[in-house]
Design a protein around this nucleic acid. Sequence first.
DNA 1: AAAAATGAATAGCGTACGCCATTCATCAAA
DNA 2: TTTGATGAATGGCGTACGCTATTCATTTTT
Lengths: 193, 193
Amino acid sequence: MAPRGGLRTGAGRKPGSNDYHESTRAIRVPLSLWDDLKQYLESIKSLRKRQALTKDMVFPAIAPPPLSFPLFASRIPAGFPSPADDYIDQRLDLNEYLVEHPAATFFVRVSGHSMTGAAIHDGDLLIVDRAIEPQHNRIVIAAVNGELTVKRLAIQDGIPWLMPENPDYQPLKISEGLDCVIWGVVTQVIHHV
Amino acid sequence: MAPRGGLRTGAGRKPGSNDYHESTRAIRVPLSLWDDLKQYLESIKSLRKRQALTKDMVFPAIAPPPLSFPLFASRIPAGFPSPADDYIDQRLDLNEYLVEHPAATFFVRVSGHSMTGAAIHDGDLLIVDRAIEPQHNRIVIAAVNGELTVKRLAIQDGIPWLMPENPDYQPLKISEGLDCVIWGVVTQVIHHV
DNA sequence: AAAAATGAATAGCGTACGCCATTCATCAAA
DNA sequence: TTTGATGAATGGCGTACGCTATTCATTTTT
């Protein structure tokens, strides 16, 4: 049979053509972490695959903090003359003030209304700290079946639940077999007026 | 030379004789996570290493918090391929992101519950921009009789009102003779979880 | 007898390897 | 001309490979 083809410049699989949209590298991991890591990676894979990790997620943060702004006290002594003397002239850098662990912090934009009872509304920007251990009653970002969600973590009789704060939504029990990874703890909610 | 040794039952390196005190397994990880994961693993290694185990101590007793996995990409690699527009490859400076007019911006901490309907709660930190003109329907910081307050500005038939967003509070008509100065327009609400 | 040396046995470790998936230029068939 | 088949090119993927480190029974030396 006659030879087919020839030189193929640009042929071959493209870098980042995997589900992560970027290259990978092998690393050795202790077995006790292996399952968690696997699950975690799968959730990232699934998010990136469906491009769910997109404009809704802003990564992750912390630029040099040169700017600062005056902070006013909320209660002004009666009879203050002009906005100059009596208020507390404290300057505030938002990065410093809002982010405790810069290297472990990222942002997520809220979509949905399941947490309105906790003052978390559709479109809000959440500051998420993954250096804080998720404990009972903390609000967490979880990936359930590869879908990001924000809920309050409750642990009842040793069983973790994801609790919405909106009567229209149902609690979700984190049981065996449920694909659920907790990504971090919400520390601040930024609501645009 | 004469042969040495013989059958060696129980010889050889023991399982868990590494720094983790347990076996490992290789897994592939996207490059953007690799550095973080490496760092994380090293920290676990060193933690476990310094646990001097006596022969009486139970092996290996590790098990990380099953609900937490403290890692996430600290950034997306630059030059990310095609559907890259969806990934925001930039660090976010909260000062820049939240403050439009730095020289005209200050902060106020909320006290009271008159604006809970607008997602403004007691203790929240407000970002206030004095460079934005207070218009109908904007949320403003006003000084009424020397007391700072946050309300929604409504203008009805040319008459400005300060409207609470909580049925327990009353609207306030800004009439002649009322000592009221509007300090600025609220642009962001920061709610600590 | 005690200590040191030897070599068998086996786990840890990073990565290269084999295989698969994907992409593309070219050619053959329709 | 268009379509599909073919094979070259190349990255993804899991894991087996080659190496090192560790441990122990036995032998040799002191």
